[in-house]
Computed example of a mutant assay.
Amino acid sequence: MTLTRRTFLTTSSLALAGLAARPAWAATEMALGEAKLITLSDGHLSLPREFIFAPMPEEELGPVLADFDLAEGALTPPCNVTLLQHGDRNVLFDVGSGQFFMPSAGELLDALDAAGLTPEDITDVVFTHGHPDHLWGVLDDFDEPLFANASHMMGRVEWDYWWNPETIDTIGEARASMASGAKRRLEILEGSVEFFDDGEEILPGVAAVATYGHTQGHMSFEIRQGNSAAMIVGDAIGNHHVAFARPQWPSGSDHVAEQAAETRLALLDRLANEQMPLIGYHLPDGGLGRVERDGDAYRYVADLA
């Protein structure tokens, strides 16, 4: 396994007089046997602190957060879309939020362009779950599938949850727009989506791992090449601070908080025991790192080699 850090620079706009150069895009890479995993930025979210912290014990939260360099005000977690390149496949795990969720996100197309890829180059799209920052980027400006040449895959339990007409009435007022937005996109994709269940090998060397709780059918993915492996965890481990330091605490971002905490603990324990690298959608520095034990808890270590 080889870890590298690369910055992709776009140059096409330099040829256009009077226009500023487009920004450089950083991507964290990991070689895994004959495959390569690359994380591409879709930008970042801006979330009220209570979205995560509201259900946590307030008197204990402050001392835990003091160990982390979190700015005051809104939380701004990054959004790391994972690209798996293996043979003739370009596989995206999640597709970002597109242009209609938050102004700070929806930058995946620029990141792909900087990496020398177009939407037509993507062969497979695999979803961890149906939240806006993972699903809403699947359509273009004309409400057609953006990745027109790709297969689309989602866990059966997750699809059924967002497809259920009762979800919009039971998810809570604050998340009702998430449910309607997910349903609209899934209706457009209906008939072209492949479903899978826990433990299935959905692509060569890619196995689905049920990590329910953040959403009802959230999936992670173990990418294995020979004796080397990495885990794409999506939002099953949703941040680099309390999710590691107090994984047993409920998070306001999780649909089924108790189940999500149990899932998080089991996943952290496995990753620490096996020293398997992970890629987290909202983890810092590109989201590629590993888990270390820290007493009776854990800590996140970014791999920036």
Score class of each variant (00 low, 15 high):
D269N: 09
A27K: 09
V256Y: 15
N90M: 12
T39D: 09
A150Q: 00
L265N: 11
V125H: 01
R156Q: 02
L189W: 04
T263L: 13
T123S: 13
P132C: 05
A74V: 13
E50T: 13
T10L: 15
L304T: 12
V91D: 06
G137N: 01
A105V: 11
P165T: 11
N239F: 04
L19S: 12
A229D: 07
D88F: 04
L189K: 08
E258F: 14
A229P: 09
G62I: 07
A182S: 01
N273P: 13
F93S: 06
D254V: 09
D110E: 11
R6H: 10
D269S: 10
F93Y: 05
I38S: 05
E187W: 08
G172W: 03
A148K: 12
T82C: 06
A266T: 08
L268S: 03
I223W: 01
N90W: 08
A182Q: 00
A176P: 06
T118C: 12
D110Q: 15
L135T: 06
D121Q: 07
D197V: 10
F51K: 10
G73I: 10
A66R: 14
P204T: 00
G205S: 02
V91Y: 07
P119T: 05
L186N: 01
S251H: 09
D197R: 01
I168S: 14
G252M: 05
H134S: 00
R6E: 01
N273A: 15
F196V: 11
A266M: 15
M154S: 03
V301N: 05
S228A: 15
T76R: 13
A272Q: 07
L112P: 05
G205P: 06
P55L: 00
R184H: 02
S251K: 11
G238I: 09
Q216R: 15
D235V: 00
H44Y: 11
G226L: 01
E262V: 12
F244G: 01
G62V: 12
A74Y: 13
F127H: 04
A105M: 07
N90G: 10
I168F: 13
G295R: 00
M154W: 00
G181S: 04
L19D: 14
A302T: 01
E200T: 12
T211R: 09
I232K: 05
P63V: 03
P204L: 03
F101D: 00
L16W: 10
A208Q: 00
F100H: 10
A229C: 03
G116Q: 10
H44F: 04
G116L: 10
D294F: 08
T39I: 07
A176N: 03
E59Y: 13
A182Y: 02
G43S: 01
G106D: 03
G234C: 06
L135G: 02
Q99R: 14
P204C: 04
D294Q: 08
L203E: 00
T128W: 12
I188N: 06
V91M: 07
A305Y: 12
D113S: 15
M56C: 02
T11S: 14
L268P: 00
E166K: 08
L32D: 03
G87L: 04
I237R: 04
A24K: 11
G33A: 02
A208E: 04
E262L: 15
N80P: 02
R264C: 01
